[in-house]
Design a protein around this nucleic acid. Structure first.
Lengths: 247, 247
DNA sequence: TCAAAAGTGTTAGCCATACACCCATGC
DNA sequence: GCATGGGTGTATGGCTAACACTTTTGA
């Protein structure tokens, strides 16, 4: 996004995308957020839609700009279309803190309908890049989200709910994990998303019975217990199952 | 929608809603469509979003204008944001056939991102009303859809898929049926949406076990077989289950 | 008495759950 | 050895699919 183009013919007016980008690290589900220049608020990575760009492509572009990643699991989940979802006074403060030309108020103060996407990315591969309008770009644990602008807290909640529902039909995980990983990591992801503990023996059996994992070598962590086996996804079977859905 | 307001400050530019309105009649799932004035195409009931109106409210308004119904099951399911989803030549033909001021081409020829909703309505209660830009408003069986404009066929397909997924978690049916109905009607709805035959004994047991139906009197159709009992929804329990989801 | 469709009963098999138990590892 | 967490085995209950059977209705 080039700031000078904002108030011109480049973007569709009144429409935006916001991405809830999930990563997994330290057995914790995390969300990528941007720090507003007012020093008080954080926000979801979002952007506008080029006049000749598909909405999906806009979401992919925003994701790429913030993470450097392409071709990851990116799923549209809801539209947030309340005319009062943004606050004029907050917007004015933000524009001021960004030291932008005040003519851009016209752009930022308009009402936006935003299309929510959630993305699943491999935490280690992400090099978070703040956009020109933000101070920084950082990961936050899902239960330690800071103060967000507008309805962005609602959007994250809604993304989690949507993901929870998709989880029952789609083997989510490949995009959140490195190429090989212990089953416990996958289980932790499921536990975090579903918000409840799962029985390890039963989880292992169920996941393995899907036929989408390859057993690889043992992984010695140095801890005083049995070394877990690592697994990797069989991508072909994984995508086939993604398409059809589980159970 | 007032035509003369189209190209003014009344509506959000580039954004629309389209409703896939489902009804149930003659043991068939039907969709409400509008006839374009070119005499060749049909389209989904859709509309624009007032500058100070929520997107959900716009969808409800469109639904009310075409059916006279309010407070029915109306569910946002997908955004269609391909910049090439409409065809300029088709739009020009349609505007011409509508005998509108050609300055309105500016409005109709812009790129629209549309937000898809599906609605479940009680067929008998609907008095289809065409909008000022259409010739008529009629029901079509789901497997006999006529030629549609733009990507509207895709939108219907997508609505069916979404509904199929929701069906497993939500007791859909109340909004499609009159206040009392035989179990067979409900079963037919499920069969149509899921696209497969269901076993009657098992279906009856499952639905009745949810505790959302009240048994009422027998209904003599005049046919040479046992008269089926009618049932009605216990709304309170129904909505509780809707909220929590089935199984 | 018969055909058609409603409704009931019964069984087998699958799958989720729960939990007991064994195994490898480093201190 | 022992604590720790990985991994395996197994019994139980509930749900579902499949289908045989009974009941009611009008011709």
């Amino acid at each position: 996004m080039d700031i000078k183009d904002l108030d011109t013919q480049s973007f569709m007016p009144g429409l935006s995308v916001d991405n809830v980008i999930f990563g997994f690290h330290d057995n914790q589900l995390k969300v990528l957020l941007l720090a507003c220049k007012d020093g008080k608020h954080w926000m979801l990575p979002g952007g506008y839609i080029l006049k000749n760009e598909s909405v999906d492509a806009a979401a992919e572009r925003v994701l790429f700009d913030r993470t450097g990643l392409q071709k990851v699991y990116l799923q549209q989940f809801n539209v947030f279309g309340d005319p009062k979802r943004s606050s004029a006074s907050l917007v004015k403060g933000l524009v001021k803190s960004m030291e932008l030309d005040e003519t851009l108020n016209h752009w930022f103060l308009q009402r936006f309908v935003t299309i929510g996407y959630y993305a699943l990315v491999e935490y280690e591969k992400v090099k978070p890049k703040p956009d020109p309008l933000s101070l920084s770009c950082d990961w936050f644990e899902i239960d330690q989200i800071p103060r967000l602008i507008f309805d962005h807290a609602t959007i994250i909640e809604s993304a989690l709910t949507a993901m929870r529902q998709h989880l029952n039909f789609q083997p989510i995980g490949l995009n959140l994990l490195p190429s090989s990983f212990p089953l416990k990591s996958l289980q932790s992801i499921y536990e975090t998303i579903l918000g409840k503990k799962l029985d390890r023996p039963n989880f292992n059996r169920k996941i393995l019975s899907l036929g989408i994992l390859d057993k690889k070598e043992k992984h010695f962590t140095g801890a005083a217990h049995k070394a877990p086996f690592l697994y990797s996804f069989r991508k072909k079977e994984y995508y086939k199952l993604l398409k059809d859905g589980i159970s």
